[in-house]
Amino acid sequence: MFLKLYTVWLGVFSVSFVFLPIYLVLNWRKRGTADGFSSVVLIIPMIIQSFWLRHGLMTNDWTNIIINSLNLSVLSCYVAAYAYYQPKRKYLIGQIIGAAVIIKCAFLYVDSHDSEHLNAAMGSVAAGAQILGLGGRLYEMRRAIKMGTTEYIPAVMQFAVTALMAQWFIFGVITGNKFIAIANIAGLITSAFTVMLYFRYPPLTWTVPIFNIPPQQSQKQE
């Protein structure tokens, strides 16, 4: 009973995150263009979720199937909106083709395994892709250290993603899915280091919620 309720909660909580980029779309509409924004933040999650979707299909995990199917559908709409508002579409087209090639090659690699190891191979690919997807966050951390401030690492989004990964980690543990557990523990470690940066390099103009870390400008005035 607990697992069923937890699965429903996790599904609702996870799906809610896919609607966050709608603020980007509204911004593009207001500006009349998506020029200057990167579509990579939309394409990379689609690759990762494609891997988790196939893993769910192979293991008959309906939680993964439903969540990732819905997420892929909504992300496709965001990509379409980006294409509509982006006057320079050649990079987007290249990224979509590249994503399709990566997904196809990954599936071919998985299919090269014998039936006994197919599920494990797909799980390893999905978990590995999610861990590699942390590269963007590592770049943000490196940039914050170089600039001496976490001004451009939104705390609310950071804490929300951390909460989501923590719940997926718990789900992986209680269901015995080591691939989900490993992928999300890597994300939690990255989040822990990011939170440490808020203390070492506070934002310039805003207070970090929860920890109530004042901005650097306020500290200088004192």
Rank of each mutant, 00 (worst) to 15 (best):
Q130E: 14
N68R: 03
N184K: 05
A106G: 11
L5A: 15
S50H: 02
K30M: 04
N71P: 01
I131G: 02
A120K: 01
L138G: 15
E116Q: 13
D35M: 11
A144H: 09
L5W: 14
K220Q: 15
F171G: 00
L53F: 11
C77M: 11
V101A: 14
G36S: 01
T190R: 13
P203E: 00
C77A: 10
L92W: 02
G94N: 09
R142Q: 08
L20C: 10
Q130T: 10
A186I: 00
L72F: 03
Y139A: 15
L53P: 12
I66T: 13
I182L: 07
Y152K: 12
A155W: 00
L197T: 08
S112Q: 00
I22P: 09
L42G: 07
G172H: 04
L118C: 07
A192C: 03
I131R: 05
K104Q: 12
T162S: 03
W28K: 01
Y109K: 05
K104G: 14
Y109F: 13
M157Q: 13
A34R: 12
A163N: 01
I185R: 01
Q221N: 11
F13S: 12
R29Q: 13
P154R: 07
P21E: 05
N119A: 13
S14L: 02
I103R: 02
M147G: 13
N184Y: 08
K178C: 06
A106I: 10
G11R: 12
L138F: 15
L24D: 15
I66L: 15
Y198N: 00
W52E: 09
I213H: 09
S38L: 08
I22L: 14
Q49S: 09
A183D: 14
L138W: 15
M196S: 00
I213D: 12
I174H: 08
T175K: 06
V15N: 14
Q167P: 09
I66M: 13
E116A: 09
R137H: 14
A181F: 04
G172L: 06
S218R: 02
N27H: 07
G176D: 04
Q217S: 04
A83T: 03
N212V: 11
V18N: 03
S115A: 01
Y85H: 06
P45D: 02
A127K: 08
Y109E: 07
A99K: 02
V101H: 11
G11K: 10
I103H: 04
Y84Q: 06
I93R: 15
T205K: 08
Y152I: 10
M141K: 06
S218Y: 00
P202K: 11
K104A: 14
G123K: 09
F179R: 06
P45N: 01
I182W: 03
T194N: 07
V74M: 13
T190A: 15
V79P: 02
Q158G: 14
A144N: 12
G136Y: 02
F13I: 09
P214I: 02
V41H: 05
F37W: 12
D114M: 05
S14A: 03
F17T: 04
A99F: 02
I185F: 06
N184W: 04
I145Q: 07
L72E: 01
D114A: 01
Y84E: 01
F107Y: 11
N184M: 05
I96W: 08
P21T: 06
I189T: 08
H113C: 05
P215Y: 00
Q49H: 14
L24H: 15
